[in-house]
Each structure stands twice: as structure tokens, then as C-alpha cells.
Design a protein around this nucleic acid. Structure first.
Length: 180
DNA sequence: GATAAGATGTTA
DNA sequence: AACATCTTATCA
């Protein structure tokens, strides 16, 4: 049971997005722990028109420029939250969007970025949490490593910019991946 | 201060 | 295919 450290997230966003597949996302809710296996991710970087940080720092996107290993939680369409983990060195924008989890334990319905946040009770309160610290209410642990032959690389979903960049990754044949 | 668009999910 | 629904960014 190891927890990836600062330098794990300080690398290239695409590399981190691939490596995070098969890792666990854990959420402490009072005395309960909700956990799931990350089965689908997307990469967002500074020179990427679809990234919130594309046009520079704003009150919302400033988190993307901070230390790698922090969470980035925001509200989309007024009703759904999305979780990301900040990557790349400080002052370089980058993040990995967690799009789907394979649930462990008693919860379910985590095959989409908005749904998994609802299930894990992730809100803006959990923005800028250090996910390398197991004392946090939200953190990531190494769980299983996925062979590169089991990783599918494809285009991102739900965006209108740079739709042809293959920056979405998921575990082959996993039934908890969000639908196309 | 007003306005348009958005890394989505549900329903028909 | 339409819509629910509100924050954020941008412009005046």
C-alpha cells in the first residue's frame, strides 16, 4: 500500500494520466471511507485550448498552476462537480481529470465525472487538497499496475476544443468506463 | 452589472 | 435530441 508522492505528479500530464489507471481514489466521509479504482482519465495541459488554464490564471484555474499532487474540484453546468489532480511542476498548468471509477464496497454509479463526485460527496470544499497525504479527506493510493497493452488511448469527451487529441485513457474492457 | 458558454447527466 | 441550472469569464 504505497502512496504516490510529489514527484509522481510533477511529471508530464499524459504520463501521469496513464499511470493513474489502476490506482485507488479514497475519500474519508466521517468515519467511513469510500474508495474506487481509477479506470478512466483525461489529460489537460497549458497549451491545450480545452484546458481551463489555457488563457492564463483566473480565480478558478489558479489551482492548476500550483503544486502537483493537489486536487482541483470545480462545478460544471451549475450542477455537477469534477475532480482533477494537478500535475507538472509548480507554475506550469496541468491536470488529470478523473472520469470514472470501478467502485469498491457499497457504493455504485461512478461511470462519469459528475456521477462519481456525487457518490463520493466531492464538492468545492475538497478543492486544493493534498492527495499525497493519507491524513487528507481525499487521497490516492497505488493499487494495481496496468500493462500498457491494457490501456486504450483515444479522444476526449464533452469538450468543443481540440477534440481530436488522443488524451483520454481507460482500461480495456472495463465495464465501469463512461459511455461514449 | 449583464451575458454567453460550459471537461454533464437524465429523460423522452 | 432536449433540457435542467448556475458558476465563471469576459466585456461594458
Amino acid at each position: 500500500m504505497t502512496i504516490p508522492n510529489y514527484s509522481f505528479y510533477e511529471r508530464d500530464t499524459l504520463q501521469v494520466a496513464k499511470d493513474l489507471l489502476g490506482y485507488k481514489l479514497l475519500r474519508r466521509d466521517g468515519d467511513k471511507i469510500l474508495e474506487g479504482i481509477i479506470v478512466e482519465t483525461e489529460a489537460y495541459k497549458a497549451n491545450d485550448p480545452a484546458c481551463h488554464a489555457y488563457k492564463g490564471k483566473t480565480p478558478r484555474s489558479v489551482t492548476l498552476f500550483k503544486k502537483p499532487g493537489l486536487s482541483y474540484v470545480y462545478l460544471i453546468y451549475g450542477m455537477y462537480h469534477c475532480v482533477n489532480i494537478v500535475t507538472e511542476p509548480e507554475e506550469t498548468a496541468g491536470a488529470v481529470l478523473i472520469r470514472a471509477l470501478e467502485p469498491i464496497g457499497s457504493f455504485d454509479n461512478t461511470n462519469g465525472p459528475g456521477k462519481l463526485c456525487r457518490e463520493l460527496k466531492i464538492t468545492k470544499e475538497l478543492n486544493e487538497i493534498d492527495v499525497t497525504n493519507p491524513e487528507s479527506n481525499l487521497w490516492v493510493e497505488k493499487y494495481q499496475s496496468i500493462k500498457s497493452s491494457q490501456i486504450v488511448e483515444t479522444t476526449r469527451i464533452g469538450i468543443k476544443q481540440a477534440t481530436d487529441w488522443p488524451w483520454r485513457f481507460y482500461i480495456k474492457d472495463n465495464k465501469f468506463v463512461s459511455k461514449f
